[in-house]
Each structure stands twice: as C-alpha cells, then as structure tokens.
Amino acid sequence: MLQPVKTLPADFPASILVVLHVAPNSPTMLPQLLDSVSMLKVKHPQDGELIEAGVMYIAPPDHDLLLNGNQVLVTRGPKENRFRPSIDALFRSVAYAYGPHVIGVVLTGYLNDGSAGLWWVQQLGGLVIVQDPRDAEQPTMPAHALTVVAADYIVPLAQLGPLLVYLTTPDESL
C-alpha cells in the first residue's frame, strides 16, 4: 500500500478513503506511516468533518468510514462480512453520494469484503479498479471482486498511483 501512496502528488484533486481490516482494539499507526511517505495529508477523520481534496482519510479501528454528502461519518454500525470497518459500507455510501465521480479500488486481502460495494460503485456510474490477483500478497479479495464486477482496470500495485493520477487529471485539451 505504501508504493501507490508515494506516487500521488500534493495537488491530487480528489479525496481518498481507506478501509483496512485491523483488530478492533489494536492501536493503528497507519495514518502516521502513510503520512511519512505521502505528499497528501493523512489522518483518521472526525465524525461530521467536511471532505477535502488532497486528504487521505483512514477508517479508525472498529469504526465504519462513510460519506453523507460532503461529510465524513465515523460510526460503529453493525459488522458486515464479519468486519467493522466494512469496505462494502464505505463503497455504498460513496457511490450514493458521488455516483460517476467515484473510483472504487480493491487491493490485497482475505475473504470478500469490498466486492458487493464495488458492484454499487459500478451500478451508479463509478469506475472500478482491482489489483491484479497475481500481484497481490493475498489474492482472495481481488480475485473475488473480479467474479462480481467487470473491472474497468486490473493493475499491479505499482501502476495504481499513476493510474489514479491519470484518471483524476482533467483533460486540458478539451
């Protein structure tokens, strides 16, 4: 996950919301770790704060990360697929909030969280990126996602950052 974060420029024109499955009571250093290698601001959001471009929001352990319009919600709703935070819950909320302006990404991981949420992203007009399972440390999540959605892009982790920059950069020739 560090590799694509390193390649995102400071003026990245979108927000990034990240869900990583961690034990509910474990301390997480992920925001500090990513902040140390990223040109973006990285943090655990506060419930109700307004979403900003160029900021990477990390779901706190045992809390869902959702969007309601332009507000970030940090909640303790029911577990989905045995997890909280739930990638599916995040993807559903961003798909409903921003439809065709969403890019859903599933990377390495176990089980199938994220697959149903990617389906919603795609149904509501967003783009779907899945890490190439052959490139993933744990291929189960990306492989399962590919059984649920027709990904717009299937890429190795090393190509994710440049692809996100390309997809979010307006075409100035128009």
Rank of each mutant, 00 (worst) to 15 (best):
E80L: 14
P100M: 09
R82M: 14
Q71P: 04
L73K: 15
D88C: 02
N70H: 13
A97M: 02
A89E: 08
A97T: 06
G99P: 06
I87Q: 02
S86L: 03
P78T: 10
V74D: 02
R84F: 05
G77W: 06
N81H: 14
I87S: 05
L90F: 02
P100F: 05
S93C: 05
R76K: 13
A97D: 00
V94N: 00
V94I: 11
A97V: 03
S86M: 03
D88A: 04
P78W: 04
P100N: 11
A97G: 03
Y98A: 08
R76C: 10
K79D: 07
S93R: 09
D88N: 13
L73P: 05
R82V: 12
R84M: 07
G99A: 10
H101D: 13
A95Q: 02
P85I: 01
N68A: 12
N68E: 14
G99F: 04
V74H: 02
V72T: 00
R92G: 01
R82T: 11
F91C: 05
L67D: 04
F83P: 00
N70F: 05
G77P: 11
R82D: 13
L67N: 01
A89W: 02
I87E: 00
A97W: 01
L90I: 06
H101F: 06
R92S: 09
G77L: 12
T75G: 05
P100Y: 05
E80Q: 15
G99D: 06
K79C: 11
N68D: 13
P85F: 03
L67Y: 01
A95V: 06
P85W: 03
E80G: 06
A97R: 07
V94K: 03
L67Q: 01
L73T: 03
Y96K: 14
A95H: 02
R76F: 08
V72G: 00
N68R: 15
G69Y: 08
R82C: 11
